[in-house]
Design a protein around this nucleic acid. Sequence first.
DNA 1: GAAGTCCTTATGTCCGGACAAAGCGTTGAC
DNA 2: GTCAACGCTTTGTCCGGACATAAGGACTTC
Lengths: 260, 260
Amino acid sequence: MMPSRYAPSVPKHEPAQLRLAVDRASPVPLYFQLARQLEAAIEDGALTPGSLLGNEIELAASLGLSRPTVRQAIRSLVDKGLLVRRRGVGTQVVHTDVARPLELSSLYDDLAAAGLHPTTRVLHNTRGPAPAEVAAALGLPESCQVSVVHRLRLTRGEPMAYLCNYLPSDLLELPTAELESSGLYALMRRHGITLHSAQQSVGARSGSAEECGLLGEPAGAALLTMRRISYDDRGRPVEYGAHVYRASRYTFEFRLLVRG
Amino acid sequence: MMPSRYAPSVPKHEPAQLRLAVDRASPVPLYFQLARQLEAAIEDGALTPGSLLGNEIELAASLGLSRPTVRQAIRSLVDKGLLVRRRGVGTQVVHTDVARPLELSSLYDDLAAAGLHPTTRVLHNTRGPAPAEVAAALGLPESCQVSVVHRLRLTRGEPMAYLCNYLPSDLLELPTAELESSGLYALMRRHGITLHSAQQSVGARSGSAEECGLLGEPAGAALLTMRRISYDDRGRPVEYGAHVYRASRYTFEFRLLVRG
DNA sequence: GAAGTCCTTATGTCCGGACAAAGCGTTGAC
DNA sequence: GTCAACGCTTTGTCCGGACATAAGGACTTC
């Protein structure tokens, strides 16, 4: 009779012994320092799945912090999916691999962070009337002038994505040289635009002849698509993007948590 | 000279007048009651983008709550992307459309919530040796026995997705009748499995003849794909899924926030 | 051995207070 | 008109305390 692999996990009742300390002279908030150290302990292997952290009250006392401060640090790691809290038991490590945070970011930044050396070729950079879908997305009158940018994104010299973006024409200037040296979002941030969120839609379709030609894929190849409307922190739409990616070279990778 | 559409938004300096009240006899936590009411006010149009909420200290006083309690309510709406907080200014509404929360959920539940009347046909429901990729994902020895379930998901009687799922064979029984009447995750929950998170990968490819035949798509059509490893709250892998969706009928829709 | 009860443990909620830091508007200097 | 300084406003951080609630383990009964 094989033992069940899904036997209840035996929690370690001894809290892990960790080197944690906060620097009160640092401008970094105490809770953030603690969160960072806990995360490092998880990454370093000092804390492994099932490890108990020690109860909040004792942890706070040993660090000379208030309990809400400790709770705030733990909360941020719970939100990242690294820790789970159990009443009557304590706080335990769930995962040790720190996943990429699921947040709005630019493809350029993602690829750079992944060490893929992104480069950009601007194929088209004009102003023109907004197609109906773009106008609707940006909340503009039909045929209103918008900035239109088409770019090819390459990694290690190979085409990876074809990006078409539309912005309100009065938002900012979009010099081709700047678009080729960094991502669109970085450019927007440098002009004082504070991004807040985006509504995204990920799908698939067969590529047009133009798209497949640009991306170096065979005619009609399946492409991964993403459309998004990005909003600033006042809730105004500031970008409509229609991106297509080589499915052979790109997937969206992310971790989702159960909420509640 | 046309006025710039991207002019600085003029914040409303008068806090919105809202009907907010908490019921201290209710078992629902006070912060949750407040969050719910604020969210309803946003959905109902009483709070619109740019509306100020009134400062935390006054809001807490007017409700007879402590400030941390009010902060907790507001925090949950900030995390949903509905509100934004500005030091020196106050808390403002960003978006009024409440987006579907971005969290791990089952396709069945999503489709049901969207009013699409999902149904399921179990095509294959056996135990067998784990393919290498599955074994690696589930942390099992190669060729170890796993539960193998292939299902066709339909909406309004039309095929929408072909789902192949693999679970550790000792995890739970997977009766075909139950798989056809609700989603896999619901079944797992009923057996005491607490899901915590999943690592997901979304991509695209041309469908095989079998897949396209099952889904009612032309041969070689572009399909949207999703692979995931789901973990329970102890961090153990409990499911490997390989799903393909008709790109003509399904996209992943979600809202992402800027963090920080 | 299984089920129910009770106790212990640790998180969840809530409170009230104080001070720091960032944003915005106003004022004054040039 | 522009820029810098100042003051006010509001959020961000932190504290210490108390009580409620859910989960797990130990004990008892059948």
